[in-house]
């Protein structure tokens, strides 16, 4: 039996990772699988991928995918700024970041906001379960109001919706998905990897240990039953895909991504226009009122420049620019000294 190879002739084994230490059945492991499949099928060069994460259950997962890539586990909530610095230092790296709701909505929310604001070119996967797992199940800032986790009281606080926040900040790719929707998540993940700019995928990923009970509005069953899908999605790469693509029967329209690949949006129910920020906010707002989870590509903008472009950096990664080029020349020192002396 021949081994399937991707567009850069690598087997899927080159994209897998270590064995997960998360709880059996954790939604996060599904997401890792989707990242592995998407990176393989999209043909990312493993050695040019930097897996970025913070602290928490979600942030452990880079150990479970792409073991032939570089990893950077930062301290809690600081992954966006480390990524910003690393991107400035080496613009050729592909950044795939995994964060959780504690990491991104509480301790690191300022960092999240500024990375979005800069339109840093990265895939930002938010593994969102509404609780702090590693510290035994406290509510996080994304916990739904009126929801109740396995132990403790009903959550009385308004959640922070990072998708709303991202749309508000002009994030160029805002999607919400569900760890149980493998097909949808895979299409969105591949599209995010093909996007130039900050691509947020907020994945509702139920915590099987602390937040999967009947009274929870984030349990696997509740999310599955209350998932409002905006569209059905297919990702069409620029090369011959490894798996065949189904041709949709109904209406659809295409979004062309930066690398030329296409995300095909098939209409199901009412059609959402992902270039309409107000529509995205309305969809999120209505879903919140109805205690539903709206999933799909909420907002997309292909016209914004990225943080790297805004900085007018040279094409060569800064880290690779030789010191002879980077260091001030004798001539520039002389200019400086002249300026200090005030003689021209």
């Amino acid at each position: 039996m021949s081994i399937k190879l991707n567009v850069i002739d690598l087997p899927k084994d080159d994209y897998t990772g270590g064995k997960s230490t998360l709880c059996p059945g954790c939604g996060h492991d599904q997401i890792s699988t989707v990242i592995i499949n998407s990176a393989w099928e999209n043909g990312l060069k493993p050695e040019m991928v930097a897996k970025m994460s913070g602290i928490g259950c979600s942030s452990k997962t880079p150990a479970y995918f792409l073991s032939k890539s570089h990893g950077f586990n930062t301290v809690h909530g600081r992954m966006p700024s480390v990524t910003t610095g690393a991107a400035m230092g080496n613009r050729d790296l592909t950044f795939i970041a995994v964060s959780g709701d504690g990491d991104s909505a509480s301790i690191g929310i300022g960092q999240f906001i500024h990375a979005v604001r800069r339109n840093l070119d990265m895939v930002y996967v938010l593994e969102n379960n509404g609780v702090y797992g590693l510290t035994k199940g406290q509510y996080s800032a994304t916990a739904v109001k009126g929801s109740k986790k396995k132990k403790g009281d009903i959550n009385k606080h308004q959640p922070i919706d990072l998708c709303k926040l991202a749309v508000n900040l002009g994030c160029t790719f805002v999607a919400r998905s569900f760890s149980g929707s493998k097909k949808q998540l895979t299409a969105l993940m591949k599209a995010a990897m093909s996007h130039k700019g900050f691509a947020l995928i907020d994945v509702i990923s139920p915590c099987v240990t602390f937040n999967n009970n009947d009274e929870s509005l984030r349990s696997y069953t509740y999310v599955k039953d209350n998932d409002l899908e905006l569209h059905a999605y297919d990702y069409i790469p620029t090369y011959t895909p490894i798996e065949g693509i189904e041709i949709p029967e109904g209406e659809f329209h295409d979004i062309t991504l930066f690398d030329g690949s296409v995300l095909r949006l098939e209409t199901i129910g009412s059609d959402h226009d992902p270039t309409d920020a107000v529509a995205a906010m309305a969809a999120l707002h209505q879903a919140e009122i109805d205690n539903k989870h709206v999933t799909g590509l909420l907002y997309f903008d292909s016209n914004k420049s990225t943080a790297i472009e805004d900085q007018c950096l040279v094409d060569t990664p800064l880290a690779d620019v030789p010191d002879e080029v980077m260091r001030p020349s004798a001539a520039s020192l002389e200019i400086l000294n002249t300026r200090f002396r005030g003689k021209d």
Binding site: T74, R78, P80, S81, A87, L318, D320
Partner: peptide
């Protein structure tokens, strides 16, 4: 906080920071 983390990121990528 972001200042030091960006400095670390850039240094990790290979730049004197």
């Amino acid at each position: 906080i972001s200042v030091i983390c960006m400095t670390i990121g850039a240094a990790h990528a290979g730049c004197r920071s």
